[in-house]
């Protein structure tokens, strides 16, 4: 596959710090190979900016193979860009045409304050997990791995939920900046597996409460999160969270 070179106009959100006002800056970037990944294109932009004495655009990224969940970016109004089931780091420039204007914004949510440019603070997710997204089992306490069988099919559903990479695209894409898909994925995984049963009620109640405290919006069941999710987490997990929550509220201990 031979590569093509395209020219792009980038409209990039620049913001020097959490409290500074931000603005869009336009950059012309020529000779972009269509084989590049989107982040490599930003690397090239940054090299050019530094060479011309301007500070590079800050953006989060790490593994660049779609699993760590560090990369973000709202690209032309879509979380992780136009492809489905794809993170920004796996998006390639062949998805764009010569002469395109590409608008790049950070995730926008009150619970994800902007750190700089396109970098946001997603520690709210960590706090939600620490409020209950685990099984309380100390090291050394475990019975044999085969002591409790888990049906293959059940395990598959748990794994579907466990595949969440915690990138925050669900929040970014949701018109309400709701974190329900993220929270429900963890609640589901542990509600399905026998290992998670002991803390099932407490878990869902405290995770939802933490989610609200962080300032995420409420779920309107638009399923935009599911469409934006690079790990293809299903909204059926949200239904399961709702069930779990009802169950915990009506039947759980107080």
């Amino acid at each position: 596959m031979s590569s093509e070179l395209i020219n792009l106009t980038l409209r990039v959100w620049r913001q020097s710090g959490p409290d500074s006002p931000g603005q869009f800056d336009n950059y012309q970037l020529n000779g972009v190979s269509t084989h590049m990944s989107f982040l490599e294109m930003l690397d090239v932009l940054n090299e050019q900016l530094i060479e011309s004495g301007q500070e590079s655009v800050a953006f989060d990224h790490d593994c660049r193979e779609g699993i760590c969940g560090t990369c973000s970016l709202m690209i032309n109004g879509q979380a992780h860009g136009p492809d489905t089931a794809t993170t920004t780091c796996q998006l390639h420039m062949r998805r764009f045409n010569d002469g395109d204007t590409v608008t790049i914004e950070p995730w926008r949510a009150t619970a994800f304050p902007i750190v700089k440019d396109l970098v946001v603070d997603r520690s709210a997710f960590d706090r939600i997990i620490s409020s209950g997204g685990y099984v309380s089992v100390n090291t050394g306490n475990a019975p044999d791995g085969n002591a409790i069988p888990v049906a293959g099919s059940q395990q598959e559903v748990a794994m579907d939920a466990a595949a969440c990479i915690g990138c925050g695209a669900c929040v970014a894409a949701c018109k309400n900046a709701s974190a329900m898909l993220f929270v429900s994925a963890k609640v589901s995984q542990l509600a399905i597996l026998p290992q998670g049963q002991q803390e099932r009620s407490e878990r869902v109640v405290s995770m939802v409460s933490q989610m609200d405290d962080e300032g995420f919006g409420s779920c309107t069941n638009t399923s935009e999160c599911e469409a934006a999710c690079p790990a293809e987490i299903s909204v059926s997990n949200i239904a399961r969270l709702n069930r779990e929550y009802l169950r915990a509220s009506l039947c759980g201990r107080d």
Binding site: T139, A142, D144, N146, Q155, Q195
Partner: peptide, 22 residues
């Protein structure tokens, strides 16, 4: 071996056979 046990107990969804064993 204890690593596998520990991870299972944490809720790590290891692949399973139809009968539910690892």
């Amino acid at each position: 071996n204890t690593i596998i046990d520990q991870c299972v107990a944490q809720g790590v969804p290891f692949a399973r056979e139809y009968g539910g064993t690892l």
